[in-house]
Design a protein around this nucleic acid. Structure first.
Lengths: 335, 335
DNA sequence: AAGGGGAATCGAATCGATTCGACTCCGCGC
DNA sequence: GCGCGGAGTCGAATCGATTCGATTCCCCTT
């Protein structure tokens, strides 16, 4: 292995000088800088990560705590992971994967062993056992999603309440008087997940505000159950003309189910989805949707974490504003 | 931070003794062991990862190089990632994410800085720029998928050629005389990806062997293009009665397209998919399929890497045998 | 000409674990 | 009774960077 001493010898300087060239923490004459950089390249020097972390008390690694539970839409999750990895690389950091099934102990382990400088935690529940642990850790963290008690934490999320409301407003503006929310699987609500609750709350509140009728139903992800759920909904509430779908995995089946009952989109029933743009583009018809900005969320989460690492103050809660994009699954309603 | 010296003092022993208790590399009297373990718990001691890696020359971390390119099916990929993370934890290792867009330089960086003990590389192409780099690195690696020249490497993969053949055999056994392969997006073939080629080769060879007609077509992933591709296929080759689909993302659209042309599955056209079991179970009708054993592959890859780290010899190529599960999308054909 | 000050560099201490050699007991065999 | 060997423990060297004074040198001011 090539060490900093080897580079120093090769360049004819002290090891500390090499270090200062590399970290830029002290001024270095252009001549020396050039000589050292040449030696680094000539020898193919990479600083030893362990030694660096020991001496500098910085690991150059962020922990990303993955959720692995029922009802999460995997492609969205993956977009997020990749966005985080890229953003982290932009700040000279790598990403260590921690699976959620390691629970709070996993957080303690990676933080306690100084393996990571900070933590990103996804899919936080309203009452999450990991939240108190994060508070007591000596390392900064950023949550994606936010728990009931977010005091002392830094959270990022899409403003799901506003997203639900936007969908209703859009439908109401188009003349719909009765709308339904086709939501996440029941399990997601049962385990008290913030984003599902908030969407529902925003949806219902907006319907009240606009004075239109609304109903909601949780939905599974397999074709059969989605189909029968949608059919049941339309049977019980035949006046429903607008659907808000917050369940990425069920989207194709929802459209199929509408087709099967002979309803045309958007003429008989309008559909607004909360899902990533690519998915909205890929289905037929192309869906009016509020995008889930996984990429942005990941990016922002890393920015916030880096700021905390640099001891810069950050807002406790960052809610990204939802953006609704109109496509072919909604149209003005002429009653 | 609690150090090993703190633990040693608390337990009334030398730091080295604490280390031996923790690593088990020398014999320790039961009494001392108990005392040290109690102190470790009492103080909440976690060894400093950097210090450990510096002293022992082992990082306790594996690199996982993620593909991030067109045509990969994300849920399968994610299954794989999680399987790797869990398997690694089972061997006291963590997983560091390296995105493929960092290319060979990324590998050099994480290996050169001793950040990881070994590397897992996914989605290897036939002529992959990373392969020569892996050969020259001083750290062991395992590839998922295998390149044209696999000399000196360790590779794991599903036996895709055999998988393609199994599908054909199954259809031939049921009496089909004309089968088609609905494959990956054209881009996947163009960039010379092993698994797509091998499936196709196995498919075609088996058709020859069984003396039945066959045709193949690459397919996109968006609804419209899949639909027209399938419609076109059936128009040009009306005698086709069996479809082998090796394109997870296109599956729902393929079924839809068949329905749209008025063909019944399995009565008019039989369908065999190469996809994860859950997906086969989730669609309507439930699909006869050869499973893509992402979980097993990840697990096996980690096992192989750990063996190499322990300097145990391992086979250069591990091909997992495909398993075909019969479901409702194929049935005996009575001509 | 003396002295102040900043830029550039060096040397040595430091981070926290692992590991090797050495030392102390103790029991056993002869 | 002496020596031998193994079990158990300790002490010190070591891993490879960072970082904090300290030092040198030069320029500029007064």
């Amino acid at each position: 292995m090539v060490t900093i001493a080897d580079v120093a010898r090769h360049a004819g300087v002290a090891p500390s000088t090499v270090s200062y060239v590399l970290t830029g923490r002290r001024s270095i004459s252009p001549a020396t800088r050039a000589r050292v950089e040449a030696s680094v390249r000539a020898l193919g020097y990479h600083p030893h990560a362990g030694a660096r972390s020991l001496a500098s008390n910085r690991a150059g690694v962020l922990a990303l705590v993955l959720p692995m539970r029922e009802g999460m839409h995997v492609p969205v999750l993956m977009q997020f992971v990749v966005a985080v990895a890229n953003a982290a690389r932009g700040h000279e950091h790598d990403v260590l994967l921690v699976t959620a099934d390691q629970g709070a102990a996993g957080l303690r382990r990676v933080a306690g062993s100084a393996q990571v400088d900070g933590l990103l935690v996804m899919d936080v529940e309203m009452h999450d056992e990991r939240v108190p642990v994060l508070r007591e850790l000596d390392r900064p963290s950023v949550l994606i999603g936010y728990p009931a008690d977010a005091a002392g934490l830094t959270c990022v999320d899409l403003d799901f309440a506003e997203a639900g409301a936007r969908c209703v407003d859009h439908l109401a503006d188009l003349g719909h008087r009765y709308v339904a929310l086709v939501g996440a699987p029941r399990a997601v609500y049962q385990r008290d997940t913030g984003f599902a609750h908030r969407t529902m709350a925003g949806f219902s509140a907006a319907a009240m505000r606009r004075g239109i009728s609304s109903t909601t139903l949780p939905t599974g992800t397999d074709h059969g159950s989605v189909r029968s759920a949608v059919a049941g909904l339309l049977e019980r509430h035949p006046a429903v003309t607008g659907l808000v779908v917050h369940n990425e995995a069920a989207l194709p089946s929802v459209l199929e189910a509408l087709r099967a009952t002979g309803r045309k989109v958007p003429d008989d029933v309008a559909v607004v989805a909360i899902c990533p743009d690519e998915q909205a583009e890929r289905l037929a018809p192309r869906l009016t949707s509020v995008r889930v900005p996984a990429e942005q969320l990941g990016h922002r989460a890393v920015e916030l974490l880096m700021a905390k690492l640099a001891r810069v103050a950050v807002p406790p809660l960052t809610l990204l504003p939802p953006r609704l994009v109109e496509r072919s699954s909604t149209a003005r309603r002429c009653d």
